[in-house]
Design a protein around this nucleic acid. Sequence first.
DNA 1: GTGAAAGCGCTAACAA
DNA 2: TTGTTAGCGCTTTCAC
Lengths: 359, 359
Amino acid sequence: MTKGPTVYDVAERAGVSIATVSFTFRRPSKVKESTRELVHAAARELGYIPSGSARGLAGGRTGALGLISLDYRPVPPLEFASNHDPGSTDPNADFRLFPLFVDEVQRGVEQECWRRGYAVMIAGAKPSNAEAVLTDIAGRVDGLALFFSGMADDVDLRHIAERLPVVLMSQPGDDTLSRVCVDNVGGMRALIQHLVQVHGLRDLRFVGPTFDSDRKERFDAFRATLRAAKLPVPRDPMAAAGNYREAIADLTHRQAIPDAFVCVTDEVALELMDTLREAKIDVPGQVVVTGFDGIVAGRLISPQLTTVRQPMEAMGATVVRLLIDRIDQPDASTASETLPVQLLLRESCGCPPQQPHPA
Amino acid sequence: MTKGPTVYDVAERAGVSIATVSFTFRRPSKVKESTRELVHAAARELGYIPSGSARGLAGGRTGALGLISLDYRPVPPLEFASNHDPGSTDPNADFRLFPLFVDEVQRGVEQECWRRGYAVMIAGAKPSNAEAVLTDIAGRVDGLALFFSGMADDVDLRHIAERLPVVLMSQPGDDTLSRVCVDNVGGMRALIQHLVQVHGLRDLRFVGPTFDSDRKERFDAFRATLRAAKLPVPRDPMAAAGNYREAIADLTHRQAIPDAFVCVTDEVALELMDTLREAKIDVPGQVVVTGFDGIVAGRLISPQLTTVRQPMEAMGATVVRLLIDRIDQPDASTASETLPVQLLLRESCGCPPQQPHPA
DNA sequence: GTGAAAGCGCTAACAA
DNA sequence: TTGTTAGCGCTTTCAC
């Protein structure tokens, strides 16, 4: 692990000044071709790797964008990595059902960043260390995309947003911060109207927690649509604490299974369907189940999940675009974008099956 | 987007020197409590965000690790991000079947990095720009994890590995580079022995491209195990170019469907099963199909895929551990680790079904 | 087309 | 316990 060569070493070896070395890499057009070749040769021979830190410091910009997801899921145990004994491991132990919603958005962010020549820093923050992570990453990048899976309205973004472009995803918001969100209301309305008008359902229940504004929007739209259709409007979400089994047991006991469970997310829907399967309640035969998000898993399971698809990768790409626009034009005002969603009619609402995956 | 305050500003405001400000954040124990509070107050009032570049430059280390996956899949089109019209979009258009193998490894890398206080830079490289990406990221991090989904034996890592710790994943290797890999041979042997001994299969075919060493190892182990069992040993993989439909059509036409298709990866297996479904060939009734990797999708589809599970998140965590060990002790020699795999017997080989996902 | 030199904001000796 | 100071490696005017 030798200490690496610097511009000075390359310059000396090529017999030029450090400025010329720098220009050779950053503004090749300003350097005579023969000189350029000299420098390149020297750099290659020496194994020159420009220091990102030095570049960032001198240039005032890092060329990197940050993506932080604030995550309220439990932290995996520290010993995890050393648990290598296959005999002793439950095959389900590190099983992740998802490509979670955030994973797909992250993918969109990464792709767009690379395409535009930015590096990406990824960070996950727990509510407990959010402040520290935020500050640390903010100091390393030219712009920050924030993905909050719930809570965290309390984290103080203002002073960060004053120093560098910040865009929120799937978050509430006044107009002091840029945001990328989706048409939750339109999507939910279309979904409910489909259930009511096409499948003739009347007794709909909303399932899952509504701890953030995306989820609240969905619940509100659910209620509003039912109200407009003059159907009974549930006052609260069911199983808001994730206690699906209990909730199902209770409904079964009271013989009060509704026509449909409209779940706040696909993940909730998948878990609920699992619980229903255990309870031997057929979907969509005895009850319709729908999701919201359009994660991949919903398409692979059986019955395939009817859901409202968010354009996840596009959200990631959009957030990057907003960020870069803002970097290029620092005193532009905040800008938000709402992306459209798409109703995906599949088996779990009683619609006919599709191909399981594209040919 | 005001220019942010620096140590100097904070120091002035708190009435201390810049060294004290620095110490307050990096070695709090060396600063009197009252002074510390003064500094913190000043920093908070000013909205101080330490510059990662400056810190990296001064300290000689960035506190970040890089993960580069060399990816041979096609680049998504540039207009992708602006394609927001739901009416005109094919719902399958940006559908990703996977959490790909690399995604799950990446997750492991991220988790372990955060846990150990490192930031993560993620980069994807195409063979065409691999050199540039590699150099760029190498200049920004303290250690580099490389995930090569094929090819790229040609990229010159040597001079990078001389400057900072580099660990390869799922890659060939002499001992000049550290590596994390899995027991492809043992896994494939166990799988084939199961098919032969438990299900009594005799005519096995290997499916999919073998362009990298992981895949080659699997194919070789496949052949070796068949040879040891005195069964017919196919000379080449089938459909090595991804032409599943053609291959199946051909076999059907010749009435030569084998007992089993042993696929080089889960992704290949999923695609093949899709093709078989189209061709109305029942799995596992008419032919057994197996995968290799243990990606999530294999568990959600029907029939569930029998496969050999790589400990993907553990691989990610391990690579990080190796990297950090090396950073902390720069002149240690290279170290490699081979992680065990696990045979996952599910429906596609004729074994009984499991729960679709954990309760 | 090329070079000299002044920072960029921070860390870490070394002094005090 | 705190302050002074010399870089870290690069970019970028401004001269030549």
